[in-house]
Design a protein around this nucleic acid. Structure first.
Lengths: 143, 143
DNA sequence: TTATTTTTGCAACATTGTTGCAAAAATAAA
DNA sequence: TTTATTTTTGCAACAATGTTGCAAAAATAA
């Protein structure tokens, strides 16, 4: 998967997105690049507990979200997870019609990059913005 | 839609599901029958604020969920909503591979009963339990 | 190097999820 | 129908998360 976001260094990315280069941002970007599953705020808090305040992490995620570096991933337990966007995500109102898989055993959510969103039939007078598919089950590792 | 859950009286339903007939349960079932969109715990709390404690509402929803009267509906803002199951939901490990539509204007989530879940391609070694599709956009009323 | 802008940490509060426990209500038994 | 048993409820309490305001600290621009 040829994603700038996953291959460029955090500092470089921040510059590209016109965000100030701060320790917290760099560390969070590193985490996203390090783990191959979607991260929750709680996970990052645990990961960076001794380095940054949870409000800072909260605001960093919010900022990354607004600037199109990461996107939200649905969760069937009310939580929200985040993952790096892929290249074709321009900031603002970009769409993330992805398929995600959540393993009920390990709890990890991964993006199924190869699975394309199928066509869903919607009433004619409805306007579709985004389609999110969350498949839950058991992942390869946990079987 | 021929759903027992939507047509039978609350008391009758509770008996059918071997749940004790209490005021709170009746009122919550009535709410689900009354509104044609998915309800959040917060909505029910507001609705029944002066009648029941929020913990009671929380536990009632949990009980309905476990007994297969209602099912969870994903939300793209971290919340969870609930709706009455349709007939074919036996208790326990029943599946709810539904398509839901959330309107970004009015915030309401409805079940698109006619839209069937499309086939999503998943890696061979993964085990699929449930597929949730959340389409967001603008609903007919809000356009 | 100084001025300006942004970010951070902390305090604080709201919402939701969750549990324990005694009182109240519902059902079963006598 | 009265009593015994089981379940549900309300309240207190705490955890996790979302959110804002504000002054101090850090990053960038001048």
């Amino acid at each position: 998967m040829p994603s700038i976001l996953k291959e460029k260094g955090p500092e470089e990315l921040l510059k590209k997105y016109h965000l100030r280069n701060t320790d917290c941002r760099v560390k969070i970007l590193e985490s996203f690049q390090q783990f191959d599953f979607a991260l929750s705020q709680g996970f990052l808090e645990e990961e960076l507990k001794h380095s940054f305040d949870r409000v800072t992490i909260y605001r960093t995620l919010k900022s990354f979200l607004e600037n199109g570096l990461i996107h939200k991933i649905l969760d069937n337990e009310g939580g929200i997870k985040y993952a790096l966007c892929s290249d074709d995500c321009s900031g603002g109102d970009h769409h993330h019609s992805h398929v995600h898989f959540k393993c009920e055993v390990c709890g990890q959510t991964v993006c199924l990059e190869k699975s394309t969103i199928p066509d869903v039939k919607i009433p004619k007078n409805f306007l579709v913005d985004e389609v999110n598919v969350l498949v839950s089950g058991i992942c390869g590792k946990c079987r």
